[in-house]
Design a protein around this nucleic acid. Structure first.
Lengths: 203, 203
DNA sequence: CGATGCCCTTAACCTAGCGTAAGAAATACC
DNA sequence: GGTATTTCTTACGCTAGGTTAAGGGCATCG
């Protein structure tokens, strides 16, 4: 087992499965620009005020992206586990200081590409412009859905939807984190979960 | 004054100002694929359940994109006026039934492109892949900001931010629509506005 | 293997923002 | 120009979800 090759292999597989397939040359150009990085549990990939210099592809472990509001409360916006991306796109693309934190919830390994290396990739290989267009489109769609729910759906139903939409996150994350994602307190989530068992005829 | 030419000219200007400049050929390819359409006040560009077949560039007038929740309440997600896009990206890209409505708040004129014509454009001209990647990136950034605010900022401050971030929308839209965008009732917005005048030392 | 955090739960009280109703002002449209 | 719709405002009771406090389970690390 070659541990240095394995992460890049995961990245190759990712593009092979979900996007316009890459030629050998494109694969080479892609993988050459990524750097592996290990992150401890509780460590930050990004902190508020920093510019997000890298787009990170998660190879192992688990992250959350969150804001801290004026009263000090944390709000999770996004999670990422294996084969998902974790980047503050706003900061990354605009090269502006970020308003969010990215923290590892478990010991993690990521593959990172610098902003200029990515632009470079776009300029030289048409297909990356396209694949990353699609990638952002998907992110946009998820985000719109999230906004829609957070605006127009009561907490209990948001929790239900979370369980069915993101079972791989739900299985893995502590309820504290899920509550923050749903925009409620852990106490209130606890109540919802109890009610769900008590009155199962709700479905 | 040639009224058929003017709208396309607006579209050309739009790409000239904000994106990678187009060659004459690209401009031609672009404008050839757009169709002008006039929409009456209160008319729908898209209704829930329909697939959003067109990406629409607003030449004149004003639109809102909104959902209706289970209890029948409407929630505005987005506005668009001249030189902005109004499309349900989720439905448009995935070619799935939409969950939202797009309604003209004023008599309007749009330029529309079909989904397959746009893909066509992507395949033949590298630059559109890129320009629309950037376009979606910007949309993503706005959306994330919106989500961030709706999650972590109290209504009064969201209103303030709305006024400074989107003065061109604020000037033009009835408070009812703005309230719905902010996620509050018109009655509550009314209260906020009164308080703002009464205690101006808040800033 | 003991202890120091986490994480989850329950319960009693509290408040921001909503629902409703209803009058006044402003706009749209014929 | 006049009638019909929206739109804006005020007021008051109400509810979803937050806050605070406190106890118990279970990991994890020395």
């Amino acid at each position: 087992m070659d541990t240095t090759l394995a992460p890049l292999e995961a990245l190759r597989q990712y593009f092979k499965q979900d996007y316009f397939p890459l030629t050998g040359e494109e694969e080479e150009a892609l993988t050459r620009r990524f750097t592996e990085r290990k992150v401890k549990r509780r460590a930050f990939l990004l902190q508020e005020g920093e510019v997000c210099r890298y787009a990170s592809f998660v190879v192992a472990g688990c992250f959350r992206l969150y804001t801290v509001d004026k009263s000090g409360k944390e709000h999770n916006l996004l999670f990422a586990v294996e084969n998902e991306w974790m980047t503050d796109l706003a900061s990354f693309y605009a090269e502006q200081p970020s308003r969010v934190y990215i923290e590892a919830l478990e010991p993690a390994t990521v593959l990172q590409i610098r902003h200029d290396d990515l632009l470079d990739l776009f300029t030289h290989y048409h297909k990356f412009d396209r694949n990353f267009r699609i990638l952002v489109e998907r992110g946009y769609i998820d985000l719109q859905d999230r906004l829609l729910q957070s605006i127009s759906t009561p907490a209990e139903e948001r929790y239900q939807n979370f369980l069915t939409q993101y079972p791989h996150w739900a299985r893995r994350l502590p309820n504290t984190q899920i509550a923050s994602y749903l925009g409620i307190t852990p106490e209130f989530l606890s109540k919802i979960r109890k009610d769900r068992v008590t009155k199962p005829g709700k479905a």
